[in-house]
Design a protein around this nucleic acid. Sequence first.
DNA 1: CATGAATGAGAATTCATTCAT
DNA 2: CATGAATGAATTCTCATTCAT
Lengths: 216, 216, 216, 216
Amino acid sequence: MTPGAPRGETCVKMGRPSNTAERRAQIVDALLTVVSKEGYARATIAAVAREAGLTAGLLHYHFASKQEILVALVERLVARLEERFQTRLAEAGDEPRARLFAWVDAHVALGADADPRAVAAWVVIGAEAVREPEVRDLYTAALVASRDRLRTLVAACLRAAGRSTRSSDRIAAALLSAIEGAYRVNAAAPGVLADGWAAPTLRRMIDAWIESEPAR
Amino acid sequence: MTPGAPRGETCVKMGRPSNTAERRAQIVDALLTVVSKEGYARATIAAVAREAGLTAGLLHYHFASKQEILVALVERLVARLEERFQTRLAEAGDEPRARLFAWVDAHVALGADADPRAVAAWVVIGAEAVREPEVRDLYTAALVASRDRLRTLVAACLRAAGRSTRSSDRIAAALLSAIEGAYRVNAAAPGVLADGWAAPTLRRMIDAWIESEPAR
Amino acid sequence: MTPGAPRGETCVKMGRPSNTAERRAQIVDALLTVVSKEGYARATIAAVAREAGLTAGLLHYHFASKQEILVALVERLVARLEERFQTRLAEAGDEPRARLFAWVDAHVALGADADPRAVAAWVVIGAEAVREPEVRDLYTAALVASRDRLRTLVAACLRAAGRSTRSSDRIAAALLSAIEGAYRVNAAAPGVLADGWAAPTLRRMIDAWIESEPAR
Amino acid sequence: MTPGAPRGETCVKMGRPSNTAERRAQIVDALLTVVSKEGYARATIAAVAREAGLTAGLLHYHFASKQEILVALVERLVARLEERFQTRLAEAGDEPRARLFAWVDAHVALGADADPRAVAAWVVIGAEAVREPEVRDLYTAALVASRDRLRTLVAACLRAAGRSTRSSDRIAAALLSAIEGAYRVNAAAPGVLADGWAAPTLRRMIDAWIESEPAR
DNA sequence: CATGAATGAGAATTCATTCAT
DNA sequence: CATGAATGAATTCTCATTCAT
C-alpha cells in the first residue's frame, strides 16, 4: 500500500483538484480493452498503461497492484450489467414474464448500451477466478446475485401462470449456465453459434418449460 | 529437439528404447493437474515439471514449447470426452432420446470415469482460446464437432416424436451453451449452483421443448 | 519497453529527467569491451551488464534486445571511424594522394584517437554479419560507403598523376580487403604481422600501382 | 575424455571394422556446412548431428567436445588449402612468379576443387580465434605458415627480377591481409566487391610492386 | 557403435513494483 | 500528480554433455 495514495473518493482539502476518479476509470477502461483483446496474462501493466496513454508508474499511484485494477474492472462490469437490467426493467412494467425477459435481454442483447469488450473480458475473468481468491469472490458474488434474482423472477412467472414453483431453482440454473456458456462460446470460438440466437432461444425455452410445469 | 513420432514397431539398430509416449502422457497429465489447480498462467514449465517429478529440460526435450503441451492436453480432453460419450452411447441403444441423454450425461455426469480436473482445465482453455490462435482452433473444432453431433441427435429426437425439426439448431445451441456455462460456473464459482443439477435439468428442458414443438 | 527517442528539449510536465542517452552509450561501451575481449557469443547480457555495472533488467529497459545493442555498437564504430577520417582529411588539404592516405591512416593508424577494442569488435561483427541479416546490412552498408569513397579518392589520385582511372575499382577493392584482412589478422592472430606494417605498406602499394598505370 | 573412446587412427584388434575415420570426416563435414550457413554460435551439436544424419550422442562418442570438432575442421581446411596449392605448384613449374601466382590462385580461385563453404567457415573461425585459445593457436599457426611461405615465394620473385628483397615481408603481409580481407568481405557482405576481382588484381599488384622495387 | 532420454547450468527476456526527481 | 529509470525475481527455452540400454 502506498501511504497517502488516494484510494477514497472524497477530497476535503482544496488545492489542485483531484483527477483520481477519472484516472481510475480511464485505467480500468484500458484494462478492459486489453483483457478483451489479449487475455489477462498479456494485460501487463505496461500494456494497460500504453492503452490508457499513461505511464506504468502512474498506474501504481492510482492502484496499489494489478489485482486491484482487475477488481475494479469486475465491479464495473457488474455495475454496468445492473444498469442495463434496470433500464429494461423500467420498460418492462409489471408483467412477470416481461420482467424475466428483461433480465435475459440485459445479459445477451447487443443493444446500444452493449460493450462488446465486456463479453470477452468476462470470460477471461471467469478463468482467472479459478485461481485468484479475490477475483473468485467477486465473480461468485456476482453469480450469486444473478442466481437469486433470477430465481425470484422465474418463480414470479410460474406463479403468474398458475404453476408450481418447485422448479425455479433448476430453471434459474439452466438460464444462468446458458448465459455464461453463451458468453464463453461467443468469445472463445466466435462463429460456432449463430449471431443473435440467444435471446429468442432462451425466451422460447422459458415459455416451453413454464407451460410444461404442473399446476400449483 | 522434440523427438519425432514413433517410427513404427521395428527397430533395426538397437539402442535405448523410447519411452516418449509415456513421458508425454505423464507431462500432459501434470499440466492437467497444475492447470486445474492454478490456471494456465501459473502453470509454468517449472511447476509442471515439479508436478511430474521431472526436470524442466526434459519437458522441452519431449515438447518443443509450453504451447505444444497445452495442445496435447486439449486433444486429450477431447478424446476422453469422446470415449465417455461412446461408452454411454453403446449402453443407450437405438432410442433417440436415450442417445441424446447419453451425450448430456457424457458431458455433465461425474461418474467413475470422470476426471474432476478436466472441468477446471477446460474452463481455463476456453479463456486461453480467446487469445492463442492454436488453442482457439482446437477449442473451436471441439465445439463445432459437439454442435454438429448435438444437432443430429436433437433432430432425431424431434423426428421420433413427430415434431418439426426446425428448432434443432436452437436447441443444440442452448444445450451446448448450458454445458459450457455449467463447466464454467462449477469451476470458477463452485457452490453457486447445486451439485448434480445439470443432468436432470437438461433432460427436463429437452423434454419440455420437444413437447412444445409443433407437429411436423 | 525501450524508451523512445528523446522527445525534444522542452519538458512541459516535470518528472524524472531522462538519462537514456548516456545509459545507452554506457551499455554500448560495455558491449564493445566485452565483445573485444570475449567475442559476441560470450557477450551475454549478464556479462555486459556486469561490465557496465548495471543490472540485466536495465539493459532491457534501454534496449529491446541484445541485437539492438549490437546494432548501436556497429553504428558507433562506423561513426567513430568517420570522425577519424574527417579529422585527418582536414589536415590533408587538397592534394589527392594526401587525401587517400588520410583514409588509409584513419583505418589503420593507432593514434591517440584509436580504440584498440574497436578492431577486435569489428572482426567479431564481420563474423556475426555472416548470419544476422540486420548486422549484415549494417556491415555491408559500412563497406559499401568505404568502397565508394575509396574509389573516388583513388580515381582522383590517378587523374592527378595523369593516369587512366580504369583500375580505380580494383585498387579500391585491394585496399579495402587489405584493411579488413589486417584488422582480422591483428585481432585473431596477433603477432603474425609486424606492428605498424600496414600504413607504410599500403602507401607504398598505392604509389607503385599508380606509377605503373598507363597514362590517360 | 571418454575413456576407451577411439581417438587414434590404428586399430590392431580385429572384429567389427571401425568406421571411426569416416564418421569423424562426416561429422567435420557437417560442421563445415552448418558453420558456413549459420555461424559458430548456431552450430549446435544437435544441428551438426542433424546435418550429418547422426545423433548427438554419437558425435560425443567420436569427439570429446564440440571444440574438438572445430579443431578438426580447422585442420581439414588447412590441409585442403595445402592440397590446392601443391596441385597448382606442380603445374606452375620453376618460374618464381608462376609459383607465387600459384599461391594466390590456390587461395582465391574458385576452381573445381574449391568448396564455397570453406570461405564462410574460415571467416567464422577467425572470429572464434579472437577468444578460443585453442582455435587461435591453430589459426595463428596456419597464418604463420602462409606468411613464411609467401615471404619465400615473394623473395624468389624479387630475386629473379633482380630486385632488392628487403620488401618481401611487407609484400607478403599485404598479400596475406588482402586474401583474409577478401574472404571476409565475400562472406559477410557478398556483392560489395565484384566477383573474381581478387586473382587478377593481386597479380597486378604484385607485378607493379616488383617493377617499382630498386635493383639489388 | 549407436540411440535417445536425461541433466543442469545458463541464455535472453518479461514484468510488477519501487522510487528519485 | 506524473515521469521514467531501476530492480530483481521469474519464465521460457537452449544446449553441451552424460549415460543407460
